[in-house]
Amino acid sequence: MPELSPQPQVVAPFEQLNRRFRPALMAFFLRRLGSHAEAEDLTQEVFVRITAMDVGRMTSSEAYIFQMAANLLRDRSRREKVRFDFRADAMADEQSGLDLREPSRVAASRQSLERLESALRALPDTTRNMFVLYRLEHVDRRDIAAAFGTSLSTVDRHLARAMAHLTRSMRDDE
Rank of each mutant, 00 (worst) to 15 (best):
D93G: 08
Q44M: 06
M1P: 14
S96A: 13
E40Y: 04
R141I: 02
A88F: 09
E40V: 01
D172W: 02
G34S: 07
N129D: 12
R87N: 09
R171G: 03
A146G: 12
R128D: 04
A88K: 14
R135Q: 14
P23C: 11
R157E: 06
L98C: 04
L42S: 01
R110M: 11
D125A: 07
R57A: 09
S169E: 10
L33P: 03
S60T: 05
R87E: 09
V106P: 12
Q7H: 08
R168Y: 07
Q7N: 07
L116Q: 04
L33Y: 00
F84E: 02
R49S: 09
R135H: 14
R171P: 03
L4R: 13
T59F: 01
N71Y: 02
R20E: 13
T51H: 15
D156G: 08
L166H: 10
F131E: 09
R110T: 05
E80T: 02
E45W: 02
A164C: 08
R79S: 05
F66D: 04
M58H: 00
V48H: 14
E94K: 15
P124D: 01
T59Q: 13
L100C: 11
L123P: 06
I50L: 15
H158K: 10
D125H: 03
K81W: 04
L152D: 12
L17Q: 11
R141G: 05
S169R: 12
A108Q: 12
T127M: 15
A160S: 09
T59H: 12
P13C: 03
S118F: 03
D173H: 05
R135M: 15
R31I: 00
V10C: 12
M53Q: 15
M130N: 05
H36K: 12
